[in-house]
Amino acid sequence: MSIKCSELTKVYEGGHSGWPALRGISFHIKPGEFVAVTGPSGCGKSTLLNIIGLLDEPSGGKYSLNGRNVFTLSDLERSDTRRDEIGFIFQSFHLLNRLSSVENVALPLMYAGAGRAEMHERAHALLRRVGLHGKEKKIPLELSGGERQRVAIARALANSPKLILADEPTGNLDSASSKEIMQMLTDLNAEGITVIMVTHDKELAARAGRNLRMRDGRLEP
């Protein structure tokens, strides 16, 4: 997944001139890279990740994802791209608490129109892969933080994405769990999946192939 941004800006509405979260960001991420985005709180890391993941729209600049100009995509195309090519991992897991692990993992497959048997098989396989065999029927509240994040990773992998976006994936985890999750991300990257991870943690950032340091809505040189 190749990601090219130039002069990306994002201004949140509010006040009389708005509040600029991104003030012109340019970078290029090549397929198969593991990039860590670091910087202090409020510097625009998550905003950048949301824009890369098509969850938010930039106010200006250029963004091309695999050569496609993102500005020209319809909402449906953006949804389909998120579903088929991008996997999200969030700090607070963002699992649906009323669904079991296996149902959470199957959700992206459902939106992709998979059949019942295929959904069942793939979701179970993914849960086994992240080491949650036997916890398929548990709802998120019955799982530990590390286990929840593993469910979230399994869900992110459901439609075999080419890009994983992780927003502080270990922020709510103890150090043992953090290690496991980090290892999983490294393994995924080794399989050829592009990984972009937002983090505060310098140690984790050091394990990424490349670091983008942000401050006040800009990339530090």
Binding site: G53, L55, D75, L76, S79, D80, R82, R83, D84, F88, H94, L95, L96, L107, P108, Y111, A112, R155, A158, N159
Partner: peptide
């Protein structure tokens, strides 16, 4: 609302 956000993030369209 958050659930809507989650579903959108994992690929649900507006129509969904």
């Amino acid at each position: 609302t958050r659930e809507i956000g989650i579903r959108r993030a994992i690929g649900a369209s507006r129509r969904d």
